[in-house]
Amino acid sequence: MNRKKNHTTYAPAADAEIAIQISNLDVSFGDNHVLRHFSFELPAGKSYAVLGKSGSGKSVLIKCIIGLIKPNAGTIQIFGTNITDLNSVELDKMRMETGFLFQSNALYDSMTVRENLEFPLRRHGIQKTAAEVDELVREALVNVGLPGTDNMMPAELSGGMKKRIALARTLILKPKIILYDEPTTGLDPITGREIGHLMVDIQKKYHTSSLVISHDLNCIHIAADRIVMLIDGTCYAIGTYDELKKSTDLKIKSFFD
């Protein structure tokens, strides 16, 4: 398999049809096998959701993709490059193109909104003039619907605002892929729906491919083209919301009741 090729550099194919390709991914913590031979593909420009119960390994999957967790076996290719063997420098290159929205937003408490947004720009060593940075920050904030919040501290923001700022921080690097880790958890249904619509807007504006991890069907219904059912550590089924809702499989049915 591709695993033997052992890529050491991150060289994304510009015209790759497939944004993320996962093959036979195995992850276990001690005796706890979280993912077993998990495989699936995310075509470029599409938005997929991974649906599963709590503790089914959804978060583990998405953290494997961004390189925070090393899988025990299997490959994860992003635009054709296997990222499981990359060193930290090459991983950083991949992460500049792959945004990650954390479940708990992960805004830096000690920094203002603006400093939070600038952080990935500065840390990835991207050379920009002050005016360019200003423009990027402004643009990202406008795109999430929160212009003018530059100097607020994260503690002053509501849950929905935090989520939007966290998304703005992801967007500032203009990623090709965005990974959403439970984007609506902890939000009320109305705000959750707003976030879902925002995700759709963002995908149109930034032409991204996205992968949403969630158990919130409302949000998934709004934001995802197709849904991957993660059950027992494997890719149990893939289909559109409507297809899956009609399914007679008991395991799938339980999610839609």
């Binding site: 390189g67 937003n105 992960a106």
Partner: peptide
């Protein structure tokens, strides 16, 4: 500790920071 539990440490890592 709070940075750890609110994933700020992971966020740093994906933002090109060790």
């Amino acid at each position: 500790g709070s940075m750890k539990v609110t994933e700020q440490i992971d966020a740093m890592e994906v933002s090109g920071t060790n």
